[in-house]
Structures are given as C-alpha cells and as structure tokens.
Design a protein around this nucleic acid. Structure first.
Ligand code: SF4
Ligand code: SF4
Lengths: 158, 158
DNA sequence: GTAACGTGGATAAGTTCTATCCGCGATACT
DNA sequence: AGTATCGCGGATAGAACTTATCCACGTTAC
C-alpha cells in the first residue's frame, strides 16, 4: 500500500494556491517547493484535468483553484493524482484450480472483495472530510499567520 | 494505491486452512488455487513470520492456523503480506525551497500527515473488524455448505 | 516578435512486484 | 541408513510501475 509522492506535492500546491491572489506558474510552484519543475507540471496537469484547478496559458499565466479552498477535499486531490482505482483488485482466483467456482456464482463480489471495499470506503470518507481550507488553517495554527504573509510576499516578487 | 496480489492469495489460503483438519502443504495450496507454487511459498512464509500460521517441516508437513479462525483478522493478513508501512510517507518538502520551515517546527507531524494517518486508521479499523471466520461464513452463505465439504474431501485425497 | 506559459507525447532511469531456482535442515516412511 | 517430501532463506531474472526529463505545439502578455 503506497501513495505516489506526487500526492504530497499536489497537496502542497493546492494549499499554496489557496493563499495566492492570482495564477501561480509551474515554475514558481516548483521553485517554492524545491522539486523537479518538469515532473511537477505533470501532476498539475492531472489536477487540471480533474477540474480542481484552472489554468491560464500564456505569459503571466499559471494555476488557480476553481473552487473556494473549503470546497476542495483531500480525497479529490489524492484521486486526481493517484487515480481512483481501488487498492484491492480481484483476480478471480476462485475460478481457478481443481475446485473452481462456476462463473454463475462469481456474478456478485465475494466477501473478501466486499470487506476490502468497505475499508476503502472508510478511508475515502475520512479523506473527504478534510478540505484545503482545513489544511491551511492547520499551518496557521502550527507556525503562525506570518508564514502565509511571507508566502504571498514571495509570490508577488518578480 | 495498490495492494499486492499476494494479499488475495494469502487470504484465500487462510480461509482454506480454516477448513482443513491438519497441516496443508504449499504444493497443495498452490495446486488448489492454480497459482505459482514457488511464489506462493514466499507469502506463506510471511504469514508464518507474522505468527498467523504454524509450519510443520518434513514429510506430511505444511501449514495450519495458529489461532481459531474467528481470531484472525483481515488486517493481520494484509499487513503480514503487504507490510505495515503507511501509504502516505512524508518527504518533508516543507523543509525545502526558499521559504523552508525550520527543523524546530517540523518536530511534530503536519496537518496533511495527520489527516492521512487518520484515514489509514479508519481503513485498518474496518479491516480489523473482519475475521477469517466471517469470510468462511460468507462463502457458505454464497455457495452453500457443500463447497467446504468438497474442499475437505479434496484435501484428504493423496 | 519574443519570452513565458500550459499541454501532451515520447523516452529513459530507478524501483518495486512477480516469479523462479537452489541449497539447507527437518520429518516420516521403507 | 536411505529417500522422498516438506519449510526456510538467499540469489536472481523479468515485468510493471514510478519518477524524471525533454521536445514540439498552441496561447497570451509585453
Ligand atoms: S473469491 Fe474474492 S478474493 Fe477470491 S478471487 Fe474472488 S473476489 Fe477475489
Ligand atoms: S508539511 Fe506535511 S505533507 Fe508536507 S512534507 Fe511535511 S509532513 Fe509531508
């Protein structure tokens, strides 16, 4: 069970975007986080395709959130970057071997698949309960409101 | 987010072991499920190391559950095979870039890590609520009690 | 016209997953 | 004793995925 590293990058980007006043470019976001510019671009494009951010092409372009930060959930970010497929994928091994179950019986999901799906639902529900606004508030609580002021100042610099 | 295929194999093996009367060998388990014998052995060894199954070496040896099926949870099997590491691993990117946070501040987990950890706890709690006995009962309910009778018969065959 | 920007495709390197093989010690039957 | 069957661990390929880079293209502001 592993999430890709891009998830972390994307979450940080969304928090930064929630504090920015205008569009922020890939270059700037990568510079700010100290990560690969070209690779981060791929993940931002995934956020864009998922409709979480809006992109402005051309000079002075960049990304901005399409919705208020309080309406963007952690779950959406995770699924945009890491995909929405379930962690457990049935390979139907019950249809193999000498005592294989018939295809008729395998019409519906077995108990194992159901239990796994229920666990993943619990995971998603938990992630869906956290918004970018919550995360930003957490940062303010942890390191004080001056942090985002410095961030906005840095973003305003040419 | 993906679980390894070995998880599914291991779960099936545990259910089979819960219905068997004596030790069942790797060869027999692999034969029954129609999967690679040598690779399945690796996963059974993981279950053994985790203490979920006991192994008897030598001829007529094999594996059997160390505990009643009602006391073996799905979570234990998943963690034995797939590891207990959390899906989200912090790479501390907040300590990078021009406005890097100080190490002092990063002593404790940030809001993102906490939210991810909470979601994974929910996932684990859900998995911990399902036992091998539950899964076996599910099979009986789905395909009838005759299935396990045939299984025991097949296992008894030389 | 030029420089900065997002987009998508192609590509390479690194890592993990899947699978196989071998030698070792243990056990049971002959 | 000898042999066949078994679990255990290490070494080792091959496949699949993740991470990262690069380039050609259309768009926008100065
Ligand atoms: S019985 Fe369940 S775990 Fe096994 S192959 Fe079918 S869906 Fe997957
Ligand atoms: S701020 Fe949170 S998500 Fe970012 S590096 Fe630190 S722990 Fe990870």
């Amino acid at each position: 069970m592993k999430l890709t590293e891009g998830v972390e990058w994307a979450v940080h980007c969304c928090v930064v975007l929630s504090q920015a006043e205008g569009p922020v470019s890939t270059t700037r976001l990568a510079e700010f986080h100290g990560v690969s510019r070209t690779y981060l671009a791929k993940h931002l494009q995934q956020l864009s395709r998922a409709g979480l951010v809006r992109s402005t092409p051309g000079r002075d372009g960049g990304y901005e959130l399409t919705r208020p930060a309080a309406e963007v959930t952690l779950l959406e970010i995770v699924q945009a970057v890491d995909g929405a497929e379930s962690a457990f994928r049935c390979t139907e091994i019950r249809q193999r071997g000498p005592l294989a179950a018939s295809k008729e019986v395998c019409r519906k999901a077995c108990g194992v698949a159901q239990a796994m799906a229920a666990a993943e639902r619990a995971w998603r529900t938990s992630l869906a309960g956290v918004t970018v606004a919550d995360l930003a508030a957490g940062v303010t609580a942890d390191v004080g409101p001056a942090t985002f002021d410095r961030l906005r100042g840095w973003l305003a610099d040419a």
